[in-house]
């Protein structure tokens, strides 16, 4: 990691931490001003995060798609970005920072701990336009499902009996429920594009579109799990707490799929 990149990265982590503490303060002390400050903080964190990616991209000559650190950097950027995007269209979603900012911070920390912060050129197998499509939709999928689970957690908290004070700060339960569903659908479509574009890329690289690689298989498993999720909502009318639990439990498959890249082995682990 170079100096400028490191500076922006640590600034982003500090601002996300600030956002979390201020969001918590807002909920606990019921001070709206703290909420505004938290929002400024997450916006600042996202700008620093973007600058970190931009600096790294310029230095390496490729998008952040290679190695644990770059995956964490890009994945957390998508989560924070979708969170900011949602706020533009839905009122009272700023409070989601309470779950989003610590998660983004932890992901960045996990990336740094992975120890692959050095810059390397992309190996030949990665030099494909399909990589862009595959990885971009992969991260949209990842961000959408994580946010869906995050909103589901807040839904459960907000509709629970133990935290009535928090309920007043959250959007209406019905809005959160629909938002969870929409994020899952959004993730599901992106997931489908990710799988298909990966298959096209694989056909040009290994002469086959599917190889039963562990990550590929887990990606298929998670896609089917989210398909079941949507079916249960659409055809069986699941919603509310049941659907929220389902959104949270389904995320396990995504954590295995994305968390496994670089660890499980197989074709998704860079070898060349």
């Amino acid at each position: 990691m170079r100096t400028l990149e490191g500076l922006f990265l640590w600034m982003a982590i500090s601002l996300y931490l600030g956002c979390f503490l201020l969001s918590l303060g807002r909920v606990v002390f019921r001070r709206e001003r703290l909420g505004d400050l938290a929002w400024r903080s997450v916006e600042g964190g996202f700008i620093s995060h973007t600058l970190t990616i931009a600096v790294r991209w310029m230095e390496s000559g490729h998008p952040p798609v290679y190695g644990t650190f770059e995956h964490a950097l890009a994945g957390s950027w998508f989560i924070a970005g979708i969170h900011l995007f949602l706020e533009r269209y839905l009122q009272r979603t700023r409070v989601f920072s309470l779950v989003v900012s610590p998660f983004v911070m932890l992901m960045l920390g996990y990336g740094i701990m992975g120890g692959q912060t050095g810059i390397e050129p992309l190996p030949p197998p990665y030099r494909s336009l399909w990589l862009w499509v595959h990885v971009t939709f992969g991260w949209i999928t990842y961000g959408s499902y994580h946010l869906a689970a995050g909103v589901a957690v807040l839904y459960l908290l907000g509709t629970g009996r133990r935290l009535p004070r928090l309920l007043r700060r959250l959007p209406e339960p019905d809005i959160m429920d629909r938002l969870t569903y929409r994020l899952i659908v959004y993730g599901f479509i992106s997931h489908f594009v990710m799988v298909g574009s990966g298959a096209i890329w694989a056909y040009g690289l290994w002469g086959r579109y599917w190889g039963w690689d562990p990550i590929e298989t887990w990606s298929l498993i998670s896609w089917i799990v989210y398909g079941i999720n949507i079916h249960l909502r659409v055809t069986y009318g699941w919603k509310g707490r049941r659907a929220a639990w389902l959104a949270i439990l389904s995320l396990i498959t995504i954590i295995i799929t994305f968390g496994g890249i670089g660890f499980i082995g197989g074709i998704h682990t860079p070898l060349l």
């Binding site: 659908v185 599901f188 479509i189 298909g196 096209i200």
Partner: peptide
Amino acid sequence: LLMVRDPLYPVVFAGWGLGVVGLLFRY
């Protein structure tokens, strides 16, 4: 080198394209 012939390759990706279009129409 890998040497491959798969006449079904276009069919698989036509299926995928149909699926993507279908999802966009549906949602």
